[in-house]
Design a protein around this nucleic acid. Structure first.
Length: 135
DNA sequence: GCCAACGTTGGC
DNA sequence: GCCAACGTTGGC
């Protein structure tokens, strides 16, 4: 199983809204690297949900419920979406500041490659974020 | 609101 | 195919 991290601006699509919806297709990715990551997602993979701009923190865990397919919001064949559902809300959100300060997390793509919106995480990194969130 | 980082575009 | 210009993202 693989682990991922996706970003969303809360005023566009928040963790709260995601939970109200119960399921969503992850659209709007217009970057090839991010697209390739979406394509590599498999059903059951776990995905950290990060709020960019406002909050700047990992707020919850989602899972892939449907693997990539043509983005329904465009006819351009370059772009795909996946379906995600919420799994759990983190007890304590893990802020970017915390991640940068953590020896085991300071080199993840979230820090190194700030603009990428869909990125892989190692299992150890994923677990480390959960560990921090659970105190 | 500014600006750094970086991906994309287009002229040559 | 290089690289300057431009646009976008996202932290501050």
């Amino acid at each position: 199983m693989n682990h991922w991290l996706v970003k969303s601006e809360p005023h566009k699509y928040s963790w709260q809204k995601f939970n109200e919806d119960g399921r969503t297709f992850w659209d709007g990715v217009r970057n090839y690297q991010a697209r390739n990551n979406l394509r590599d997602m498999k059903e059951g993979d776990l995905v950290m949900f990060y709020h960019s701009n406002e909050g700047k923190e990992v707020v919850g865990v989602a899972k892939v419920v449907k693997e990539s397919y043509q983005d329904p919001t465009t006819d351009d064949k370059n772009w795909v979406v996946v379906d995600l559902s919420p799994v759990e809300t983190l007890k304590k959100p893990v802020t970017l500041e915390t991640i940068k300060a953590d020896e085991r997390l300071k080199d993840i793509a979230l820090v190194r490659q700030g603009r990428l919106s869909v990125m892989p995480l190692k299992a150890a990194e994923f677990d480390r974020i959960l560990e921090i969130a659970n105190g």
